[in-house]
């Protein structure tokens, strides 16, 4: 399972990476915004994308839209882990095709649950 973690704060990338390692996912890669993430995703091989929303360059919501618009990536499971907590933002992410939404600050249990749910659904 190859996972890409996209967040502009390296601390948060490390935290997520750490939690994923506890969950048994060791093949994680990192990008600091949508602009660096997109070419990595297009490079292929990723099974799961975890992205922040608020980032310089290309935001997470734009990255999500770009992923869904790309035929080779359209079905990639995407979990948004973000501090953005407005209802209309969550609705926007849902409409853009997000598979899960976790608000920061989050607990290890919440992240685990969402990730497991996504994998259950996409099988």
């Amino acid at each position: 399972m190859k996972i890409l973690i996209v967040d502009d704060f390296s601390t948060m990338r490390r935290i997520i990476k750490n939690l994923l390692r506890d969950l048994g996912f060791n093949n994680t890669h990192e990008a600091d915004d949508g602009l660096t993430a997109l070419p990595m995703l297009k490079g292929g091989g990723f099974d799961f994308l975890i992205t922040d929303w608020n980032m310089p360059g290309m935001s997470g919501i734009d990255l999500l839209k770009a992923v869904r618009a790309d035929s080779s990536l359209a079905s990639l499971p995407v979990l948004m882990v973000t501090a953005e907590a407005k209802r209309d933002q969550i609705v926007e992410a849902a409409q853009a095709g997000v598979n899960g939404y976790v608000v920061k600050p989050f607990t290890a249990a919440a992240l685990k649950e969402k990730i497991e749910k996504i994998f259950e659904r996409v099988g």
Binding site: D7, F9, T11, M12, R14, I15, N18, L19, D52, A83, K104, P105, F106, T107, A108
Partner: peptide, 9 residues
């Protein structure tokens, strides 16, 4: 580790 998320926020 999780508590360090404050740095991002």
């Amino acid at each position: 580790i999780l508590e360090q998320g404050f740095q991002d926020l």
